[in-house]
Amino acid sequence: MAKSIDVSDLNIYYGDFLAVEGVNMTIKARSVTAFIGPSGCGKSTMLRSLNRMHEVIPGARVEGKIMVDGQSLYDASIDPVAVRRQIGMVFQRPNPFPTMSIYDNVLAGNRLNAKKLSKSEGDTIVERSLQAANLWTEVKDRLNKPGMGLSGGQQQRLCIARAIAVEPQVLLMDEPCSALDPISTSAIEDLIHELKSDYTIVIVTHNMQQAARVSDDTGFFNLKATGEPGHLVEFNPTKKMFTNPDQESTEAYISGRFG
């Protein structure tokens, strides 16, 4: 079910402002791809353009091509709502729906589809998704409590459960651990490892060790100069990137000389 993504000559704009320029890459199916780079270089923007969340911001648009499973994501015949259903997303800060219980949070995406869920179907999906998110044992006795009552790390795993409950093809994660403590972070990283066998995962991270730990491929983004648009400096298998990068600036960034 996991799909690969081909990006070619992608330019991303906010209104007239060119945020990211000329990106080419291939994101492999059933693998973890990490985007790293200094703040403001367009990693998150790039990620959000992969499921058309970018265009939620007024005036934002995209030029170039993103092909998923042979279909162009920005074709006129493509419904962004369908795209987002198939390409799930986890955000920087955990964002469960505050008025819903844990149970309802997991099912929120499934309930959007017009067909009625029976109680047993719902229970199955909730258990399966929470187990996949390594949260089941912690919350199985309080499924009807509000999702906001969980700890930050649990909330983030709840959001992951919510995202995979609709069985997406691709999972995008926008710095999923930046608001979490180290223990929760390692729980999420373990989870990413497990999810890799079923999903294509793209993760944006500020933390280079994290990129090294979880990802198979890494893309390094940087600004050409202050005020210039961000661009993809290097895209390589993570091992190569962290031992023998092609570009000098990549090495400078990874070894901590800037950024």
């Binding site: 499973d69 279909q71 994501l73 015949s77 493509i78 419904d79 369908a82 198939q86 069985e167």
Partner: peptide
């Protein structure tokens, strides 16, 4: 067997 169905009639 599920394939990606992004293109829907619009």
């Amino acid at each position: 067997t599920t394939s990606l169905r992004l293109a829907q009639p619009r």
